[in-house]
């Protein structure tokens, strides 16, 4: 485990050095992402400007949800380029064979594909929104709140990481577009930018029990904000909920290894 993390660290160091060779592309990408995220946020602002509040939630509270999920996703996104490009970059070109020829888990090598610095655009925007929301809501920070926020982000990174692993795993079964997973990744981010309580009960169930998006966003954030959950969950559940993200990641790795076995028997 320690050895694996050391290897990952080495991979990332190497990746960052290569990316810095293409400074213009890095700056363009980061700036583009920053702008995209801001424009998205502009849409949320426009709706609050017209309607005032959303089922009792204020703009600052929604901004907090928005900030948390965007920071989380930006971090996970930076770590998973290898999985994101798995179909186009590894399966279609046959380069996945190269990873199989090495004595390390393929998932570890793919995670080491790149640490995508350009995601800093979304991360930065998320942090700014989060900072503003914290200030606007005047949250009384203490160790428990800060710890829970960190756990939320960690669980969220694990969750989105798991989604990317699942998306890459699909490449073992189909060579066709995997846009379907965008529902869960980008769609998940979009969904989690707003409080879970506003959605239809069927969606809430799916996003709690099947794809635990609510567990790495809404529930713990409610506890951090210190408000009562209109859905009636308790603080203990809210605080433990982010662990679902870690469990989801474990499950995804299970699917991944089934996929690798299939790849080895179909050779495509």
């Amino acid at each position: 485990m320690a050895n694996a993390i050391a290897l990952l660290g080495h991979y990332f160091g190497v990746s960052i050095r290569s990316q810095l060779q293409y400074r213009a592309s890095f700056l363009l990408n980061s700036a583009g992402q920053f702008a995209n995220s801001c424009i998205e946020f502009l849409g949320i602002w426009a709706l609050f400007d017209r309607f005032g509040h959303l089922a009792g939630w204020t703009f600052a509270e929604v901004a907090f949800f928005y900030g948390v999920v965007n920071c989380t996703f930006a971090l996970a996104d930076a770590l998973t380029t290898g999985f994101d490009r798995f179909g186009s970059h590894y399966v279609r070109t046959g380069d996945f064979d190269r990873l199989l020829l090495r004595p390390r888990p393929t998932a570890l090598q793919l995670a080491g594909h790149e640490f995508a610095l350009r995601r800093v655009g979304r991360l930065l925007q998320g942090l700014i929104v989060l900072a503003w929301a914290t200030w606007a809501l005047d949250i009384p920070w203490d160790a428990a709140r800060a710890g829970l926020l960190l756990l939320t982000v960690a669980g969220g990174v694990a969750f989105f990481f798991g989604l990317m692993v699942l998306q890459a795993s699909l490449c073992f079964w189909t060579t066709e577009s995997l846009e379907i997973m965008n529902v869960l990744t980008y769609g998940g981010v979009e969904t989690a930018q707003y409080p879970l309580s506003i959605y239809h009960v069927a969606f809430r169930r799916v996003f709690t029990f099947v794809v635990p998006l609510g567990c790495i966003g809404y529930f713990p954030v409610v506890a951090v904000l210190g408000v009562d959950d209109p859905l009636g969950t308790g603080r203990v559940f809210q605080a433990l909920a982010p662990l679902a993200g870690v469990a989801f990641l474990g499950l995804s790795f299970g699917v991944w290894s089934i996929g690798v076995r299939r790849y080895a028997s179909t050779g495509s």
């Binding site: 707003y194 506003i198 239809h200």
Partner: peptide, 17 residues
């Protein structure tokens, strides 16, 4: 999916309008 999410959000805003 996107359509459903967007509708639920907009409907929630309209409910309070």
């Amino acid at each position: 999916f996107w359509g459903s999410i967007r509708l639920m959000i907009l409907a929630a805003f309209y409910a309070a309008a």
